[in-house]
Structures are given as structure tokens and as C-alpha cells.
Amino acid sequence: MRIKGHTIKEGCVEGEALVMTMAFSFLGDFDLTTGTVSDLHAQAGANISDKILVFPAGRGSTTGALIGFYAGLFNTGPKGMICREAEPVIAINAVMNNIPMMDRLEMDPMEHIRTGDWVTLDASNRVVTVVKKKNMEKAG
């Protein structure tokens, strides 16, 4: 499945999707040293490291982009980000820390991407490609 959208930060990455069912902040919603999602978040216990993070919206304090910088330094941050509509804290996080990111996709990413799907986020060409987890299993 190919979905077109709007680019926040250019670049092309691929990886496993981690879908967050609630808004996400780099301050408070995950552990910077391990990448593990906080106990009080809907995806508690999941790990964001090297994932293509899919979430409805950013939230939380403006320290977020600075924490994102350190997540990059510690290799605990996501590889790419996709959200319904970016707000500035999460967008600056992507631009400043060079994390490819798209938003405003033609189809709702929250409905069409599941955790474990293989996602190619080609923000330079404004297109997201999704290979469903079960199709990958069939292909063996």
C-alpha cells in the first residue's frame, strides 16, 4: 500500500512500525536511556528505538525536541515519524534532529498502519509504503 502525504522533514528510512494510540511526548512518555515507553502511556513497555513511530499527535512540554536530540545521541530514538497532523514541538524535533517525518497522509495512518508492519517512509518523495505484517509472514 502506498500513501501520499505532506513532508515535515525530508529523508528516506524503512523499518518496523510502532503505532501509538494516544498523543506522544519525548518528555515523560518514554525512557531516554532505554527507549521503553512509560508505564502510564497506552503503549506501555513497547520500545521506540529504531522504529517508525506512528501516532495521532505530539503533546507535552517544549523540552521535547531537546530530549529528541539526546535520544539520537544515545540511539534510543525513532528512525522516522508519521502523525496525523504535526504540531511545532514534534516537527522541530524532526527538523532539528534529522528524523524523516510526514503528516497529513491521504489515508489515516492510525487506521492503515499496524504495529509490526514494515514501513518505508520516503519523506523526500512524500510517500509512505506499508507492507502488512501478515503479508510478510506469508511471503516467509
Partner: peptide, 26 residues
């Protein structure tokens, strides 16, 4: 152009100034 999400919402709402949730190096 402010850091601090509390100051940002106070500026926009109570003082009628204009700004976004700036972050990082912005």
C-alpha cells in the same frame, strides 16, 4: 518565540500575544 509550554499558552491566551509551541533550537 518561547520555550516553556506554560508561558506559551499564557502569552497567547491571557496577554493576546502570538506565538507557537517553539522548541529545540527555534
Amino acid at each position: 518565540s518561547w520555550a516553556g509550554s506554560s508561558g506559551i499558552i499564557i502569552n497567547n491566551s491571557l496577554f493576546g500575544a502570538r506565538g507557537n509551541r517553539d522548541s529545540g533550537i527555534a
